[in-house]
């Protein structure tokens, strides 16, 4: 089953979800690690290059997911969910979409602050647009960090909620995102 139904996630959605999870967490760890590197570290140049490239690819993936939601609605929440659970899940889902996009835009503004384009693994380039904000790289850099941390906090809440549904509520919330809904 490739497409979502009313009660089940299709494989396309499931893959996009877990790919996003891996890239978001990977980018966060890579980002924290790369800013700690000494100038003479062998990865000092390549780590940020990979981080930038993956960030752009993640933006494309997120935009693709948002577009897909227009044509292929996600399954309805389980009927067993309480009202506050439905409300917070919607809030957390859309906040994560918003935060991930804002974080990527801020990252883009760091790397392109001097008019340089971002080369995505050498495959294609994303040109600079906004370059005239005073100390743009510094300001965007600081915000990029705080937005990324906030995003990761929400990712944590999202993951804890999934674990709660699986082990405490014993419902199929997590299982259906694994494609194993009975």
């Amino acid at each position: 089953m490739l497409k979502n139904t009313d009660s089940q996630y299709g494989y396309f959605n499931i893959m996009a979800h877990w790919l996003t999870a891996v890239i978001v967490i990977g980018l966060f760890c890579l980002g924290i690690w790369m800013i700690s590197l000494d100038y003479y570290h062998p990865w000092y140049k390549d780590a940020p290059q990979i981080h930038r490239s993956l960030g752009i690819l993640l933006a494309l993936l997120i935009v693709l997911r948002l577009l897909l939601r227009l044509f292929m609605p996600v399954p309805k929440p389980l009927a067993s969910l309480k009202r506050w659970e439905r409300i917070t899940s919607v809030l957390v889902h859309w906040s994560m979409y918003g935060l991930v996009l804002i974080t990527i835009i801020l990252g883009y503004l760091i790397s392109t602050a001097d008019g340089r384009a971002i080369s995505v693994f050498g495959w294609f380039e994303i040109p600079a647009t906004l370059t005239s904000i005073p100390q743009q790289a510094d300001l965007a850099g600081e915000l990029h960090y705080y937005f990324a941390v906030t995003l990761l906090i929400l990712v944590g809440i999202h993951a804890l909620a999934a674990i709660k549904h699986h082990f405490i509520d014993k419902d199929t919330t997590l299982l259906r995102m694994l494609g194993r809904e009975r």
Partner: peptide
């Protein structure tokens, strides 16, 4: 703050 070495990310680092 007005330091400019023609590379924003390097300038950010030097600042």
């Amino acid at each position: 703050n007005s330091l400019d070495s023609n590379h924003a990310e390097r300038d950010k680092h030097i600042r």
